[in-house]
């Protein structure tokens, strides 16, 4: 009885969370130009429009992918040394860097977006996709920083001691022990950035200055004409990417551990 109540509550929450998402996805099937639910004259024509016949969507999809992959790569490259230095030496300098790297994520994104738009206005490059990439790197760097730090902490110290006893210097143990053991955590951080960058709106809204658009921006820009079913195809695509990415993280990494569950309680 109690278990049924519990599961019932969890399922109601799940239904509540999935409802708007499901509705958006189903609306993609609408035959007409307006978003109706339940969909009228269901058709897959919108998918054709999104991926083939309307180049504006394809171009914004391309921008989304470029920004997401590039900013995730940069974020990992910047945060790896920070996390490593903090784990290895834990100096005041490394602690300051860690705090600084996590700072943008802790602010209301609109404030950081405003600041970035000032920065790129002054130094040039507002509306250039490269500044968009740097902006997302700064906004989302906190994620790989956290996952990599968790990864470093979960390295077995005995392996390091053993390597040292056998004469391995720092680069050797970095290459043979630390990097392989933290790979799944690094990749998780990478993919967290990819997914959140895909969906991020407000910062890219400010720094793109309408010079280019990602899919989320394109959807927001088209809002003036109301929602159209073609946008919903974008939502479906993004949702599928997110589910695929997080399933992969769960499959190859320890998702509960990444999110802070007690590592000792693996068996329950």
């Amino acid at each position: 009885m109690k278990a049924a109540l519990k599961h019932g509550f969890m399922l109601i929450c799940a239904a509540y969370i999935s409802l708007p998402i499901v509705i958006v996805c189903l609306s993609a099937l609408n035959g007409g130009r307006s978003m109706l639910f339940p969909p009228k004259d269901p058709t897959f024509a919108r998918f054709w429009e999104f991926f083939v016949s309307e180049p504006v969507w394809l171009r914004s999809m391309e921008n989304s992918i470029i920004v997401a992959l590039a900013s995730a790569t940069l974020a990992v490259l910047i945060t790896w040394p920070i996390a490593y230095d903090q784990w290895k030496r834990n100096t005041a300098f490394s602690r300051a860097l860690t705090g600084l790297a996590g700072l943008p994520f802790a602010l209301p994104p609109i404030v950081f977006g405003v600041g970035l738009s000032f920065l790129w206005t002054f130094v040039g490059g507002l509306g250039n996709i490269f500044t968009g990439i740097l902006s997302h790197t700064a906004l989302l760097a906190a994620l790989p920083l956290v996952t990599i730090s968790i990864g470093l902490q979960s390295i077995d110290r005995y392996h390091l001691d053993a390597a040292q006893t056998m004469g391995a210097d720092e680069p050797t143990s970095l290459r043979t022990i630390i990097l392989p053991q933290t790979l799944s955590y690094t990749l998780s951080g990478f993919f967290f950035v990819v997914v959140l960058s895909f969906h991020e709106f407000i910062v890219i809204f400010f720094v793109s200055a309408s010079a280019y658009s990602t899919v989320t921006l394109q959807i927001f820009n088209s809002l003036r004409n109301g929602f159209t079913p073609t946008m919903a195809v974008g939502a479906i695509t993004f949702l599928l990417v997110s589910i695929a990415v997080f399933s992969a993280v769960a499959r190859y990494g320890d998702l509960p551990r990444l999110l802070g569950a007690d590592p000792a309680r693996k068996d329950n």
């Binding site: 969890m10 799940a14 969370i17 999935s18 409802l19 708007p20 998402i21 509705i23 958006v24 609306s27 978003m35 639910f37 997914v195 959140l196 895909f198 969906h199 991020e200 709106f201 407000i202 989320t216 959807i219 927001f220 929602f227 946008m231 919903a232 939502a235 993004f238 949702l239 997110s242 589910i243 997080f246 399933s247 769960a250 998702l255 509960p256 999110l259 569950a261 693996k266 068996d267 329950n268």
Partner: peptide, 29 residues
Amino acid sequence: RPVQAAWLVFILASLSMSEVFIVMGWDIM
């Protein structure tokens, strides 16, 4: 633990949905 991981994938996927998409869903509703 495996059930938790499955739920977490679901939660993370919905967490990553852009504000734009969510507003779109609620707007229709």
